Computed example of a mutant assay.
Amino acid sequence: MIDTLGPSTIPTPPANFRSGFVGIVGRPNVGKSTLMNYLIGQKIAITSPVAQTTRNRLRGILTTETAQIIFVDTPGIHKPHHELGKVLVHNARMAIASVDLVLFVVDGSVPAGRGDQFIADLLAQQQTPVYLGMNKIDLRSPDTADEVANSYRAMAEQQNWPLLEFSAITGDQVTSLQDHLIQGLEPGPYYYPPDLITDQPERFIMGELIREQILYHTREEVPHSVAIAIDRVEEDDAITRILATVHVERDSQKGILIGKKGSMMKTIGTAAREQMQKLITGKVYLELFVRVQPKWRQSRTRLAELGYQRED
């Protein structure tokens, strides 16, 4: 099954062991979830070409012989347009105040923009140490490389932040990034058993894998009006049966998700099951239903029922 929080024991750390919580923040679609998946070595956060993929504060746990880093992947900080957006941005800001170190991830293939500066100004008001991480260096053009680097170098120097370059896709310089983060943490204990990679329950990961495939296959047609509820999970030695409901806001979105003669839902279900199969021992049976919940993103009650609540 998925390595989530369970009954494993927490050992005594060796001498000079370092540990702590590192918040990964930045604009939408700069590669925060991709980076955390690479560092953890397993997919626990969904990725998508659509902005605003991450909704919940997801913790990924990296344990080495000398350290344990708990990465907190946060929703992209942006100007909210509905109640869900307000909850997500609020929770991202709360995460900044509750970690030991912040990794501010930017798109290192393009110059710094107003959204980056907004987050930089927000972080400058906090006491938490910040590392500025330039992701996507594999995508930058030689013609603009100096301009891009200088824009972020100026931002880092203004706040006296260390500037680190890497690619979460290729893994280039990610090991160096990891070493810098470890050195930025204080000596500390194991917060979680060494064999865990996330503290999120198994059902949460299942729901996220379904949502990822919806984002991928429908793109802008059904962008962020989707929420997943895992209704039932039945397990035996040979198979895991999962029943889930996909909540949307309009009948037209339901039609897109189901597709002609159920073709789209079949495609989404097959792709999600294949992703689950990588994490779950034995065969996986997945059955999806679609339900219309008008304006669920505007309703605090509906948001709470679907697992989106303000964190304090």
Rank of each mutant, 00 (worst) to 15 (best):
M1Q: 11
D3F: 14
G6F: 15
S8N: 08
S8L: 14
T9V: 14
I10H: 15
F17H: 12
R18V: 08
V25I: 15
G26H: 03
G26P: 01
R27Q: 12
G31Q: 02
T34R: 00
T34Y: 00
L39C: 06
G41Q: 11
Q42G: 04
K43W: 03
P49T: 06
V50T: 10
A51P: 13
A51T: 15
T53S: 10
T53R: 03
T54Q: 08
L58V: 14
R59D: 06
G60W: 01
I61D: 01
I61H: 04
I61C: 14
T66V: 11
Q68F: 07
F71Q: 02
F71S: 01
V72P: 00
V72R: 05
V72K: 03
D73M: 08
P75K: 09
H81Y: 07
I96R: 08
A97T: 14
V99H: 03
L101W: 07
L103D: 09
V105C: 09
D107V: 09
G108W: 00
G108T: 00
G113L: 12
Q117S: 10
I119Q: 02
A120F: 10
D121N: 13
L123Y: 03
A124E: 09
L132H: 04
G133C: 05
M134F: 07
D138A: 09
D138V: 00
D138W: 02
L139K: 09
S141P: 06
D143C: 07
T144A: 11
D146R: 14
E147W: 15
A149L: 15
S151L: 08
Y152T: 05
R153S: 12
A154P: 04
A156P: 02
E157Q: 15
Q159Y: 14
W161P: 01
W161N: 02
L164V: 09
V174F: 11
V174S: 15
S176M: 13
D179H: 11
H180T: 13
G184K: 04
E186V: 10
P187R: 03
P189D: 13
Y190F: 15
Y191N: 13
P193G: 07
P194K: 05
D195K: 13
I197L: 08
Q200V: 07
P201N: 05
R203E: 10
F204I: 11
I205H: 07
I205N: 06
G207M: 07
Q213C: 02
I214E: 00
T218R: 00
E220K: 12
V222I: 01
P223W: 11
S225P: 02
R232T: 10
V233I: 13
E235F: 14
A238D: 13
R250G: 06
R250Q: 13
R250W: 14
D251C: 11
L257F: 01
G262K: 00
M264H: 01
G269N: 07
M276I: 05
M276E: 10
Q277Y: 06
T281C: 09
T281W: 03
L288V: 10
L288W: 00
F289D: 03
V292T: 10
R297L: 04
L303Q: 04
A304L: 09
G307S: 06
Y308C: 05
Y308Q: 05
Y308H: 10
R310W: 12
E311H: 14
D312C: 10
